[in-house]
Simulated assay, not measured.
Amino acid sequence: MEPKWLEWAKRIQAISQAGLEYSRDVYDLERFEMLRALSLEIVHEHTGVGTERLRDLFAGETGYATPKVDVRGVIFRDERILLVRERLDGAWSLPGGWADIGLSAKENVVKEIREETGYEAEAGRLLAVLDKKFHDHPVSPFHVYKMFFRCEIMGGEAAAGLETSEVGFFGENELPPLSVERNTEKQVRRMFDFRRTPDLPAWTD
């Protein structure tokens, strides 16, 4: 579970962002700017990240605030799951990333698989929709929904991408160090449960 200070900072930021979008009164706009500054101050105090950097990452969006969407592809070869090594931290994750505007969730996960693994894939069943704050991820300034899709390889061959350095298949008892920013051990192991029991209901928070 994420700390309360982060939950409060996110809520203040969301309120300020909506207020700045819809308010017309100059005094209200000033107050909402003050709320945005307060949310930045809270996160800065607890993380040490500079306020300008936080403004770009955390408080730079406009319009009504909504959760971000992260998509992950779940591909098995026999009893081994496809993972990629992330260049950023050297650890492994299910292929995926932020969903791009203009593409459906399935189109996004197929694109991410192609870019990160070299494989052409087809997306099938939605296995899980998880709220990142309920899982053992590092704290994040964003509110994130994570979507996991069962996918099948249709062509291509293994090849690292711009954000990945290796591609490999791993058994449940031989998982490499995982990139917990992107996926936890519990999440990856649950995907093996779906492999063994295909009619399990979708996993949601």
Rank of each mutant, 00 (worst) to 15 (best):
61 E>C: 09
61 E>N: 10
62 T>D: 11
64 Y>A: 14
64 Y>G: 09
64 Y>P: 10
65 A>D: 12
66 T>H: 15
66 T>E: 14
66 T>D: 12
66 T>C: 11
67 P>M: 13
67 P>S: 13
68 K>N: 13
68 K>A: 13
68 K>D: 14
69 V>M: 03
69 V>S: 03
70 D>G: 02
70 D>E: 02
71 V>E: 04
71 V>N: 07
71 V>P: 08
72 R>F: 09
72 R>V: 08
73 G>I: 04
73 G>Q: 09
75 I>M: 08
75 I>N: 11
75 I>A: 04
75 I>F: 04
75 I>T: 11
76 F>Y: 15
77 R>Q: 08
77 R>L: 11
78 D>G: 03
79 E>V: 07
79 E>G: 12
80 R>A: 09
80 R>F: 01
80 R>V: 02
81 I>T: 10
82 L>A: 06
84 V>D: 10
84 V>F: 12
86 E>L: 12
87 R>T: 11
87 R>F: 01
87 R>M: 06
88 L>N: 00
89 D>A: 02
91 A>H: 09
91 A>F: 00
91 A>Q: 08
92 W>M: 05
92 W>D: 04
92 W>V: 05
92 W>C: 03
92 W>A: 01
92 W>L: 03
93 S>I: 04
93 S>M: 15
93 S>T: 10
93 S>H: 07
94 L>D: 08
94 L>E: 11
94 L>C: 15
96 G>Q: 01
96 G>W: 02
96 G>I: 02
98 W>E: 03
99 A>I: 00
99 A>Q: 04
99 A>V: 01
100 D>I: 12
100 D>F: 14
101 I>W: 07
101 I>A: 13
102 G>D: 10
102 G>V: 08
103 L>V: 06
104 S>P: 00
107 E>I: 01
107 E>G: 12
107 E>C: 00
107 E>N: 01
108 N>H: 04
109 V>F: 04
109 V>S: 06
109 V>G: 07
109 V>I: 07
110 V>N: 03
110 V>D: 05
110 V>M: 10
110 V>C: 11
111 K>Y: 05
111 K>D: 08
111 K>R: 13
111 K>N: 04
112 E>R: 14
114 R>P: 00
114 R>Q: 13
114 R>M: 14
114 R>H: 08
115 E>I: 15
115 E>F: 15
